[in-house]
Computed example of a mutant assay.
Amino acid sequence: MCLVTGQWLFGTGEAMIVAAQLGNSPWTVFAQGTAMRAGLSIGLMTNLIGALVLLLWVPLRQRPGLGTVANVLLVGTALDVTAHWLPAPSGLPERIALCLGGILVVALGSGIYLTTGLGPGPRDGLMTGIARVSGWPLAAARVAVEATVLIAGWLLGGAAGLGTLLFAVFIGPCVQIAVRLIGRMPDRDL
């Protein structure tokens, strides 16, 4: 249950960030840009990109888990469902609050699903696989991959901006805190 809850929250947080219209997380900038070109929803494109990223795992000898497969199915679906129901924020303070709230929800969702130990999401597995095979530090692999998809997504028309910067600055520390807090909770139903 934690796996599904965590990944649904992750997609919900991404929808909040998109709705804030201040710029998306790097992978969502890419999903939005490709979705616009393909005439698909951003959530469906998020799921399709997740599935395609799994193909990049093959030469890296990464092994998917149940969490990996669930990520491909749930995150984009939650993004689309939540985006359908979210009201448009009216002013800049509301948009900033929605964006920051979305970052916190993504971090909480990440903390919940990562502590299940059922496998990383496709994008995280790509970065850890690149780091392992190349010998790069994980931070360098993450920056290289996320900068690449961010630039590609922006060139395709995805929204990058203040929200993208806020995501980049806050997501790592917030996920770390969420993992630490959730990891201490007794009797979690995985």
Rank of each mutant, 00 (worst) to 15 (best):
M1W: 09
C2E: 14
C2M: 15
V4S: 08
T5W: 10
W8M: 14
G13D: 12
E14V: 04
E14I: 13
E14A: 15
A15N: 08
M16R: 06
V18Q: 15
V18T: 03
G23T: 04
G23W: 01
P26R: 11
P26Y: 08
W27F: 09
V29A: 09
V29I: 14
F30A: 13
T34W: 14
M36I: 13
A38N: 01
M45D: 09
M45I: 07
M45H: 10
V53R: 03
L54K: 13
L55P: 03
L55V: 14
L55F: 07
L56R: 01
L56Y: 03
V58R: 14
P59H: 03
P64N: 10
G65C: 12
L66P: 13
L66Q: 14
T68I: 05
V69P: 02
A70H: 10
L73K: 03
V75G: 04
T77A: 10
A78S: 12
L86R: 05
A88K: 11
P89N: 05
G91D: 15
R95F: 02
R95H: 04
A97Y: 01
L98M: 15
L100N: 12
G102T: 02
L104A: 15
L108Y: 07
L108R: 11
G111S: 13
I112W: 06
Y113M: 07
L114D: 04
T116K: 13
L118P: 10
G119F: 00
R123Q: 07
D124Y: 10
D124G: 14
G129W: 00
I130V: 15
R132H: 11
S134K: 04
A139Q: 15
A140C: 05
R142L: 01
A144N: 02
V145Y: 06
A147T: 14
T148M: 09
V149S: 00
V149T: 06
L150A: 09
I151C: 04
L155G: 06
G158D: 08
G158Y: 05
A159E: 14
A160G: 07
G161P: 05
G163T: 03
T164L: 02
F167S: 01
A168W: 04
V169Y: 00
F170Y: 08
I171D: 01
P173K: 08
C174G: 04
V175M: 06
Q176K: 10
I177S: 06
I177V: 15
A178C: 13
R180T: 15
L181P: 02
I182G: 10
G183P: 01
M185A: 14
P186L: 09
D189Q: 14
D189A: 11
